[in-house]
Design a protein around this nucleic acid. Structure first.
Length: 695
DNA sequence: CTCAGAAGCTCG
DNA sequence: GTACGAGCTTCTGAGC
């Protein structure tokens, strides 16, 4: 614990605060006896300082906005403080710059004799589909590496045309393992030029994510620091940051070479440690059989991209613009003065001061001291003043136009005529993928106007879009894990699970279930997945606390296995400090094993209930995605996966093959990972993503 | 002028 | 004081 006290000493110095360390533990620090002058200091400054010193995120019991009172007990939870003042060790790596054809030939000979090659690329962009190659670095053993300059503006460069064919043999040799940190990026950068690195045998970023998906420090530089005590050069040191940032192509080869080589050499050293760490948590299979092989699959999806109907988006943009201007004028006329409709603060002032509307929840002000103007609030104000409906409509249209209609047009890649999202395999702590630049996992569907945007996502010539989604996969996973007879039976009979639940908790026959009863049952089923409390249920239904209690009680009586399962998970999470998916993906809950405050513990308890459910669904989808391309190929089908939206896959396939493609994909998805109940899928297809023709 | 945080909204 | 998991846009105030 020596390092902890060092951290605390530093915190003390930094903040000039006297700390009561009597009860301090590694993961639980109590800050007590706060000096009066500390009131001046924003509490969030304290939090930030602790986070900076520990390199970890913290959660605090007190409201982050207010300063603590003198003598007030503040309990601050720090997620596993780490050694952060590691002595600086200069990396001592031999740098070989490969800038002649002769040197290249020699290096390739060496590479061909390697057992493992670690690789990294230097490029002009963080977006792989827009990145040009500036250089390639390679390492086959610790302490030495090679840098091949290609796109530097000054100095001796080799050309892509001579480098890539030369590297093809070693980088595709099935006997030579290939490793990298965040391999998908470099894989795409090279694959765009026809070099598909294979086989990928290790990825230090994915490995670390399996070891601790909650880690906020999965970057190579940080891992080198924490695990190896190596202080690496940061990219900002080479290209600067912010507005003054320059391109890697502008940096001298001699400056980039050691940096780039370290990016290839360090993963070799990290891998040696992580291989052992993975064994200790049984994470090797997860990496080798799911996350790592998924990388080239995702890379293919990203590189393929999805076409947009550009005229459709252009027209929609104009239409929305016109309508928004109309609404804006009406609002200003009605209010009697113009203001910025996009500003929640100005709107709040107009609604609650100028128009004297009554805030539905007077106590509920936002952190900036204004009354909230969120949809929930505005909905309750409907009918009180004509501007409310106008604002709501403007909000919706404004969101659609800026976030989707305009942003998607801008995201269209001029070279391919398609939109290429980027999937992150470390984006969600549960093991789900995330999508960004642009995010294609949150395209509107719930409102009519929003849903229309899906008509703008189309298939290539002669093709259709085919969308297949798992039906109720999370509840099926719950039924399987809980082994609840009632719920298993419902799924075996392929019943409408929410209706069945409604019949059970209301004690009526299934024919007698009303829409409202089903809606309540659905809320409970969802709440179940989210680890909700009875109180939580009242916030998402119009049920009173007493009614909610009655329903939940009835629910657990009808599904005793669920109750037992939930209690079991809570106990397990507290006992061992982590929970796992069916495939062994682990997520830690440090607060549950500390004396952290109740709110934090409750939160982690809900997360611990949700993690195995959401995470198992994610694992199963990943397995399906691994199996689909070879299954399609074996069936002689041309279909390609374009998008994944958690429980849905969108493929593009020739119109004539749509039925056969759907059959193969559905078959693969339902059998990806057999549970005690069958998984079920729904398929739709059409000329665009908005069409819903059944197979 | 730049940047980070808040507020709000989109999805499964 | 409460649902779980994400990413993007706009406004705003602080700091350069």
């Amino acid at each position: 614990m020596a390092y902890l006290s060092r951290d605390l000493a530093q915190i003390k110095t930094d903040l000039q605060v006297r700390l009561d360390l009597d009860h301090a533990k590694v993961s639980d620090l109590d800050f007590a006896a706060v000096e009066p002058f500390f009131q001046e200091l924003e509490f969030r400054t304290l939090i930030k300082t602790v986070e900076r010193l520990t390199g970890k995120e913290t959660s605090a019991s007190s409201s982050a906005a207010s300063a603590p009172k003198p003598g007030q007990q503040i309990s601050m939870f720090v997620d596993e403080p780490q050694v952060i003042y590691a002595p600086k060790i200069d990396s001592n790596i031999i740098v070989n710059i490969v800038d002649t054809a002769d040197k290249l030939t020699k290096i390739v000979k060496v590479l061909n004799t390697a057992t493992v090659i670690s690789f990294d690329t230097e490029t002009t962009s963080t977006e792989e589909m827009r990145a040009d190659i500036v250089g390639i670095s390679l390492a086959i053993k610790e302490g030495e590496g090679y840098y091949i300059p290609i796109g530097h503006k000054a100095g001796n460069n080799l050309t892509l045309e001579e480098v890539l064919p030369a590297l093809n043999a070693p980088l595709t040799n099935p006997k030579i393992g290939k490793i990298a940190h965040n391999a998908k990026y470099d894989y795409i950068v090279l694959a765009k030029h026809g070099l598909r690195v294979a086989p990928l045998t290790f990825d230090t970023m994915l490995a670390e994510f399996i070891l601790d998906p909650s880690s906020h420090n999965l970057g190579l530089k940080n891992l080198a620091f924490v695990k190896l005590g190596e202080e690496m050069t940061h990219i900002e040191d080479l290209i600067g940051k912010g507005k003054k940032q320059i391109s890697m192509a502008d940096v001298a080869i001699e400056s980039v070479a050691p940096y780039a080589i370290a990016d290839a050499e360090i993963p070799l050293r990290l891998m040696a440690l992580q291989v052992e760490e993975l064994k200790r948590v049984n994470g090797t299979k997860l990496l080798e059989e799911i996350d790592l092989p998924l990388t080239p699959v995702l890379a293919d999806m990203e590189m393929t991209g999805i076409p947009l109907d550009l005229p459709f988006f252009e027209e929609t943009s104009k239409r929305l613009e016109k309508r928004m201007a109309e609404i804006e004028k009406q609002v200003f006329d009605s209010v009697g003065k113009p203001f910025n409709l996009n500003s929640t603060q100005q709107l709040s002032d107009i609604l609650f001061n100028r128009l004297k509307l009554e805030p539905p929840d007077k106590g509920n002000k936002t952190a900036s001291g204004h009354f909230s103007t969120s949809v929930g609030v505005l909905d309750l104000l409907r009918g009180k003043h004509p501007v409310v409906d106008m604002v709501l409509e403007h909000r919706e249209l404004s969101k659609l136009k800026s976030t989707y209609v305009d942003a998607l047009q801008a995201a269209l890649n001029p070279n391919t005529g398609r939109v290429h999202t980027s999937y992150s395999q470390i984006g969600a702590v549960t093991g789900r993928l995330s999508s960004s630049n642009p995010n294609l996992q949150n395209i509107p569907i719930r409102t009519e106007e929003g849903r229309r945007l899906r008509n703008g996502f189309v298939a290539g010539k002669g093709n259709v879009l085919l969308s297949i989604d798992y039906s109720q996969i999370e509840l099926r996973i719950v039924a399987h894990m809980a082994q609840d007879e009632g719920m298993l039976a419902a799924f075996r009979a392929d019943e409408d699970i929410h209706a069945t639940t409604a019949a059970a908790i209301y004690g009526v026959k299934s024919e007698a279930v009303t829409r409202n009863m089903r809606r309540h049952a659905k809320a409970i089923n969802f709440g179940l997945i989210y680890g909700m409390s009875v109180f939580g249920l009242t916030r998402y239904t119009e049920l009173t606390l007493a009614e909610a209690e009655t329903f939940v009680k009835a629910y657990f009586q009808k599904f005793p296995g669920i109750k037992k399962y939930l209690d079991g998970i809570r106990k397990l999470a507290a006992q061992q400090g982590y929970v796992e998916t069916l495939l062994g993906r682990r997520r830690y809950f440090p607060a549950l094993q500390s004396k952290a405050n109740v709110q934090l513990k409750n939160r982690e308890e809900r997360e611990a209930i949700n993690a195995p459910i959401q995470g198992t669904a994610a694992d199963i989808m990943k397995i399906a995605m691994l199996k689909i391309p070879p299954a399609l190929k074996a069936a002689g089908l041309k279909g390609r996966m374009l998008l994944q939206v958690h429980d849905e896959l969108v493929l593009e396939c020739p119109k004539k093959e749509v039925k056969e493609t759907a059959r193969v994909v559905q078959d693969t998805m339902t059998n990806a990972y057999p549970l005690d109940i069958p998984l079920s899928t729904d398929a739709r297809y059409g000329a665009n993503w908005g069409e819903t023709k059944s197979i």
